[in-house]
Amino acid sequence: MSKKHSSKIYPDAKSALRDVLRDGMTVMSGGFGACGVPENLIAAVHDLGVRGLTVVSNNAGLDGFGLGVLLKTHQIAKMISSYVGENREFERQYLAGELELEFNPQGTLAERIRAGGAGIHAFFTRTGAGTLVAEGKEQRVVNGETYILETGLVADVALVKAWRGDTEGNLVYRKTARNFNPPMATAGRVTIAEVEELVEPGVLDPDGIHTPGIYVQRVIQGTNYSRLIEKLTVRSREEGAHAVVA
């Protein structure tokens, strides 16, 4: 370990990650599609060059964006995800046998992370009963319903992206960029948050905090956000208020 850091605030992503990353570790990475992705922290993982990572993330990024950056350099050995479309490099590595993949139903993934962070070792769920997901898992029938046993997930490091954060590590997310970030923040042995706006104590409303600072060990101010939109979908003015789908 490097010298003690009395503050949770680190000057940049590399300094926040340098002494915690190891080859072969498990990393959680927040985000849904291109929304709420810890872009600065992922770039630092890329630059620091660790390999053989198991990455827990709902999606696998896009070519050249988010986790796609770590796939390109073959730093990821295994992904635990619910949906990995829209990434050609991922598909190529998977089909070539270079990358291990574990699919979890999206809600099972979210609940495994929530349970891991809450110290719940395992839980029974109906999701996946009677499907390939149930294979090799303990099953139990309660009141005529079949449930399967799923285990909690924790990570060596959780990388999350928030809108605003303070020096205590209290976090507030914005709109649907919240997604997997709050449960992942609870499930990292070390949780590192990057925020769009780092604020002084007292600025965030204590009633409006989404992730209390106890879950967050390190905070950095993020920079250069791509503001990427995966599927730009708009309606014309003529369609008016009622048109939902173009």
Binding site: F32, C35, R174, T176, A177, T233, V234, A241, V244
Partner: peptide, 24 residues
């Protein structure tokens, strides 16, 4: 992906990268 009360698609220029549906 974490929203109740989904509205219509935005007018051009009013889209927000932090506001998407489950189809992205």
């Amino acid at each position: 992906n974490g929203m109740l009360g989904m509205g219509p698609f935005p007018f051009p220029g009013e889209e927000d990268p932090d506001l998407i549906n489950a189809g992205k």
